[in-house]
C-alpha cells in the first residue's frame, strides 16, 4: 500500500493536469506529450533532466533522514542558499584562483554553511523545544534576503553593468561538464554517493535504526534510552549538509555565479520528492526524476505552447495533494455523523 500511494497520486495528477490543459484550450494528449515526453527526446534533454534531478535527490536524501525521525526540516531552500553563498565566497575570494584545492574547499564550505544554518533550529529545538518547522522555514527567508543583500551590495561584480550578480567563478572553481555541448557535470556523482550513504544509514546503521525508532514510537525510544536530542541534531544536520552541498554544486555547476534567484525552489520541491520516495533512498531517486521532469516539462510547454510558468508549481502542488490524500484514504475511513442540538441520541442508538 505504501508503494501504491505514489503511483495513484501520479496518475491522478496526470488526469487533473489533462483537465487543466483542456480548460486552457489545449488538447490534453499532445500537451501531456509536450510536457512529459518531448523534454527527454534529445541528449540535451536527458542531460538537463539529470542535472535538475541531482540537487532534488541529494536534498531529499538529507531531509528524509530527519523526516524518518519526525524531525521536520522545511528550510532546505535556505540551507541550499547558504551553501551556495559560502561556496561562491570561497571560489571568488580564495587567494589562489587556480588552486586544485578550490573545488574541495568550496565543497566543505557549502556543506558547513548548510549545516550551520540547520544547526540554529536544531539548537533551539533540542534546548528550548521550539518548533523546527517554523524556525527552519523562517530562516529560509533570512538566507534569501542575505543573498539578495550580497549580490546587490558588497559582492556585486564591479564589471557587471550594475546587474545584481557576482563576478563569474574562476574555472578552477567550476565542475567541468562531461561534454561542452551539455551542462551535465560530475557533481551528479556526489548525489549517487549520497543515495548510497543514505541507504546505508537508514537501512543498515544502528544510528539510523535509533532515528527510525524515535520517529515510529517516541515512547519506545525513551524506553530504550535513545537520546531525543540526538535525533533532532542528526536529522537537521543531515538535511543541512545535503542542501548545502546541493547549493555548492549548483553554484559551481550550471550557475557559475550568484544572483538573487539561484534556485527554482529545489529546497521545497525536495520535501515532496522525499515523500513521494517514501523516505526510502531508491524511492527518492524515482521521485527526484519525476519532479525534475515536472520542472523541465513546465519550462518546455511554457516555451512551445505559451502556457503559464506557474504550471510547474501547480503540478507539484497537485502531486503532493494527491499523495497526502492517497495516504489518508489508505490509513483512514471517513464516517459522517449528523450534527445535533440537545438530544440523547446515544440512548436510542
Amino acid at each position: 500500500m505504501r508503494v501504491a500511494a505514489p503511483v495513484v497520486a501520479s496518475l491522478l495528477t496526470l488526469i487533473v493536469g489533462s483537465i487543466f490543459f483542456a480548460s486552457l484550450g489545449h488538447d490534453p494528449l499532445p500537451t501531456l506529450y509536450a510536457f512529459f515526453i518531448e523534454p527527454l527526446n534529445s541528449l540535451n534533454g536527458l542531460s538537463e533532466w539529470l542535472l535538475k534531478a541531482s540537487p532534488l535527490i541529494l536534498i531529499a536524501c538529507g531531509l528524509a533522514v530527519g523526516f524518518r525521525a519526525n524531525v521536520w526540516n522545511i528550510g532546505a531552500e535556505g540551507q541550499f542558499t547558504m551553501g551556495a553563498i559560502a561556496a561562491s565566497g570561497v571560489g571568488l575570494f580564495w587567494p589562489n584562483p587556480d588552486s586544485v584545492l578550490l573545488l574541495p574547499l568550496m565543497f566543505i564550505a557549502g556543506m558547513g554553511a548548510g549545516m550551520a544554518w540547520a544547526a540554529i533550529p536544531a539548537f533551539l529545538r533540542a534546548r528550548m523545544n521550539t518548533n523546527e518547522i517554523l524556525v527552519t522555514l523562517m530562516m529560509t527567508y533570512i538566507a534569501t534576503l542575505f543573498l539578495s543583500y550580497l549580490v546587490h551590495g558588497p559582492w556585486r561584480d564591479p564589471a557587471g553593468f550594475n546587474y545584481p550578480q557576482t563576478a563569474l567563478l574562476p574555472t578552477a572553481a567550476l565542475f567541468a561538464s562531461f561534454d561542452p555541448a551539455y551542462r551535465l557535470n560530475p557533481s551528479i556523482f556526489i548525489t549517487v554517493v549520497a543515495v548510497l550513504l543514505m541507504w546505508l544509514f537508514t537501512d543498515r546503521s544502528f544510528l539510523g535504526y535509533k532515528m527510525s525508532v524515535s520517529g515510529a514510537a517516541p515512547l519506545a525510544a525513551r524506553y530504550a534510552g535513545f537520546r531525543e536530542s540526538a535525533a533532532v541534531w542528526i536529522g537537521l544536520l543531515a538535511g543541512g549538509a545535503a542542501a548545502g552541498i546541493a547549493g555548492m554544486a549548483e553554484a559551481a555547476g550550471p550557475l557559475g555565479q550568484l544572483s538573487p534567484q539561484i534556485s527554482p525552489g529545489y529546497g521545497f520541491a525536495a520535501i515532496i520528492v522525499a515523500f513521494i520516495g517514501r523516505l526510502n533512498a531508491f524511492g527518492i531517486v524515482l521521485g527526484g526524476l519525476l519532479m525534475s521532469l515536472l520542472f523541465l516539462g513546465g519550462e518546455g510547454v511554457q516555451m512551445t505552447l505559451g502556457l503559464p510558468s506557474a504550471l510547474t508549481r501547480i503540478f507539484q502542488g497537485i502531486l503532493l495533494f494527491f499523495l497526502l490524500a492517497a495516504d489518508f484514504f489508505i490509513f483512514y475511513r471517513i464516517r459522517l455523523i449528523r450534527p445535533a442540538r440537545d438530544t440523547h441520541a446515544l440512548e436510542t442508538a
Binding site: I337, R338, P339, A340, D342, T343, H344, A345, L346, A349
Partner: peptide
C-alpha cells in the same frame, strides 16, 4: 467520537 449518531 464512537457515537453512531448525534450527541451533545
Amino acid at each position: 467520537l464512537s457515537a453512531s449518531s448525534a450527541f451533545h
